[in-house]
Design a protein around this nucleic acid. Structure first.
Lengths: 140, 140
DNA sequence: ATAAAGGCTCAAGTCGACTTGAAGTCAAGC
DNA sequence: GCTTGACTTCAAGTCGACTTGAGCCTTTAT
């Protein structure tokens, strides 16, 4: 497959595929002239990468999992990520409940509202870096 | 209070406080010579900012909420964020379950495992930008 | 009177994951 | 034989939230 086919099949722009190749996340197997050729299993690989990204792995972490050939998934790392997700989920739930409450709370000042104060305490612990804003998916 | 006191009380470095002031998120009320003076309520304000960050608001969004004077919380925006969080939470739960499964799954190839395939489908939908890696909190 | 401490400003750097742009190469169709 | 369009490389730019550094200016202690 050439890069455009892979792009279409995976939904990723060609620039991303080149970037991933450069990072060692995927391989092209040879060239047709200048042009990269990919074997079909790169699609699975990309799916796996996408999965990893969604689960919160960085590209570098994902690269580590794909060590020799074929994804060798590190089970301990997976479990650790699952636990990390668990904590994140709990924090987000607290946050969501707090937001939902704040949206209807009638207290003149939120600092007088016990629920809001509880929210603040949760937020205090919850000092993790936030995602960059989602970029709009531009469909051309 | 001077900037160091605010820094101590809030846990934020002075550089961040200057940055927030420049962005209009907090105000200093006058100077003592060169030095900024802050009134005590800036602490509450910072707590609110921290809360907003934890809930996934960008600094610009938070700035919008603090329009004239005193936080005027936009209830619709809060509800919208709560819903957004709801969706994120569901995705993360699916992801966590998937990870947990993948960590124990014995299938020779994950692509033969139905649970794993389901996970992939979830991940496919779940094409949101991930957080930058958490930076280690360096305690000096 | 002077030096250290700490605040100040402004510009530039950082991080991760890409994207964009300029300039070049190559095969195919007219 | 020349244009077109799809690919190539490589460098630089982008985004958000800060941090860092250089070079000043003040206050406080000696």
């Amino acid at each position: 497959m050439d890069i455009t086919e892979v792009a279409k099949a995976s939904g990723l722009p060609a620039s991303t595929l080149r970037f991933y190749e450069e990072k060692g996340l995927i391989q092209s197997n040879g060239r047709n002239g200048l042009r990269r050729l990919f074997s079909a299993n790169v699609i699975e690989r990309l799916a796996l990468i996408s999965l990893g990204r969604s689960a919160g792995f960085s590209l570098d972490e994902i690269a580590e999992m794909f060590t020799p050939d074929g994804p060798d998934i590190n089970r301990a790392l997976l479990s650790a990520k699952a636990e990390e997700l668990d904590r994140t989920i709990e924090e987000l739930i607290a946050m969501r409940d707090g937001l939902r409450h704040a949206a209807v709370c009638k207290a003149p000042n939120h600092f007088e509202c016990p629920k809001f104060l509880r929210l603040l305490r949760v937020a205090g612990k919850n000092r993790f870096r936030q995602p960059n804003k989602l970029k709009e998916k531009k469909l051309k």
